[in-house]
């Protein structure tokens, strides 16, 4: 009697677990949830893995243009950023230890095999400096050392065409030990001004 009862509870709990997995990837390595903003239609991916949580939100090129225009960047510069595959990014250290990351270690592998790199903030800032622009904020920092509880947000810029589907491969270190994870089937925001 008791055995049957326990079996039922176990079945229900496993069903719930599978449900959570279906909603957001299993609670295993690189657990991913995908969310569609009902108002904007933009997609976001939230991934958790060994000591790291990252959320990447699609950004429309026009939104990116508006943000940098507000900060008085000239059209040439904000159009260049908007021409990349951009994501609003929130990275959080959930390890309780020291987390280090460097976006130069990350890669976007497109479905056709093309590999896009994340253009580091320092490269954008160097180009802007040459044009006499001193604004350095909003972009996600190249690299960071996050102590327990630290987190950061900003725009990441990937050199892939708008609308491209790709897997994002992430690397980070926890107390000096390298970890990696993969977020499957992400997609760059469309460029709606071009009718994509």
């Amino acid at each position: 009697m008791q055995t049957t009862y326990l079996t039922r509870i176990a079945t229900i709990l496993f069903g719930l677990l599978i449900g959570l997995g279906a909603a957001g990837g299993a609670c295993a390595k690189t657990q991913v949830t995908v969310h569609k903003n009902p108002k904007s239609g933009m997609l976001s991916w939230t991934a958790t893995d060994d000591g790291l949580s990252i959320k990447l939100v699609q950004l429309l090129p026009d939104f990116v243009r508006a943000v940098y225009a507000k900060h008085n960047l000239p059209a040439k510069q904000y159009n260049e950023v908007a021409g990349y595959c951009d994501f609003g990014t929130i990275l959080r250290n959930t390890s309780g230890k020291t987390l280090k990351y460097d976006v130069r270690d990350w890669r976007a592998v497109a479905s056709g095999g093309a590999v896009g790199r994340v253009k580091p903030k320092s490269e954008w800032v160097a180009e802007w400096r040459k044009a006499g622009i001193h604004y350095t904020w909003t972009l996600f920092p190249d690299s960071g050392t996050f102590y327990a509880g630290d987190w950061q947000q900003g725009f990441t810029t990937i050199k892939l065409p708008h609308g491209t589907r790709f897997d994002l491969i992430l690397k980070w270190k926890i107390d000096g030990v390298m970890h990696s994870g993969r977020i499957h089937n992400m997609q760059c925001a469309p460029d709606v001004t071009k009718g994509q």
């Binding site: 959570l20 657990q31 949580s53």
Partner: peptide, 8 residues
């Protein structure tokens, strides 16, 4: 799973 989602 739920704890991780809240921490985000």
């Amino acid at each position: 799973c739920l704890g991780t989602a809240r921490a985000e």
